[in-house]
């Protein structure tokens, strides 16, 4: 099993005491599997994704990546896990504004010490970014920026891609196009994909789907 979330609980402080966001969520993802996580706003989708990425730690429950409980890794271990085995794609792209497109695309692979020029060139071409490698993020459209974010995530050939509403900032047509590119590249690398979305249409394009409601997996 590549990813295993076991009985995850998470609360945040609120005006009237701790406000539970996740209440005993469990799910698992095999290598090469793609899974969409849907749910209304505030259902805890993004929080669950952050737990899977080791960006947040659950109050209760276990997050296992390749059988390793990430709670046991500490900050350094979790950072290494994110660098080498995972890639996260955010709705807001989170590119480095002071680096050009080429540097942004190669960034995580370089950080992980796994730069593969031939693969990076292929990814760049497949994403239609070869004309834009010398540009800076602010000079790109939203769709182009999200393609760079996808390219950065896949240039490192991760085991697991975690995508948080990757098309949330794009219109429907552009969103479809970006998702197609992402799914193709994910399939090509053999990575698993866990994607958070509120779009049933996009969710339908993935291998399986789970619906989250009020912090729990709905039947």
């Amino acid at each position: 099993m590549l990813l295993e979330l076991d009985d995850i609980h998470k609360s945040y402080p609120g005006d009237a005491g701790p406000a539970p966001v996740l209440r005993g969520v469990s799910l698992s993802l095999e290598a090469g599997q793609t899974l969409a996580l849907t749910g209304e706003s505030g259902s805890g989708k993004s929080t669950l994704l952050h737990m899977a990425a080791g960006l947040e730690v659950p109050d209760r429950g276990r997050v296992l990546i390749g059988g390793t409980d990430i709670a046991s890794l500490g900050d350094l271990g979790r950072a290494e896990m994110r660098r080498t085995r995972l890639s996260v794609i955010f709705q807001q792209f989170n590119l480095i504004p002071s680096l050009d497109v080429a540097a942004n695309l190669a960034f995580q692979a370089r950080l992980a010490g796994r730069e593969d020029h031939a693969w990076q060139t292929q990814v760049t071409r497949r994403l239609g970014l070869d004309e834009h490698t010398a540009k800076y993020p602010e000079q790109l459209s939203g769709g182009q920026q999200q393609r760079v974010a996808i390219g950065r995530a896949l240039a490192v050939r991760p085991d697991l891609v975690l995508a948080d509403e990757p098309t949330g900032n794009l219109d429907e047509a552009l969103g479809d196009e970006v998702i197609t590119l992402m799914l193709d590249l994910v399939a090509e690398t053999g990575a698993s994909l866990l994607m958070v979305t509120h779009s049933d249409r996009l969710a339908g394009r993935l291998g399986s789907r789970l619906h989250l409601s009020r912090g729990q997996i709905a039947a």
């Binding site: 990425a53 960006l55 900050d75 350094l76 950072a79 290494e80 896990m81 994110r82 660098r83 080498t84 996260v88 955010f90 989170n94 590119l95 480095i96 504004p97 002071s98 960034f107 995580q108 950080l111 992980a112």
Partner: peptide
């Protein structure tokens, strides 16, 4: 700040 956040997310330890 966004760059720091991205770097941390991509696996750069805080220290």
């Amino acid at each position: 700040r966004p760059v720091f956040r991205t770097l941390r997310t991509l696996g750069l330890p805080a220290r």
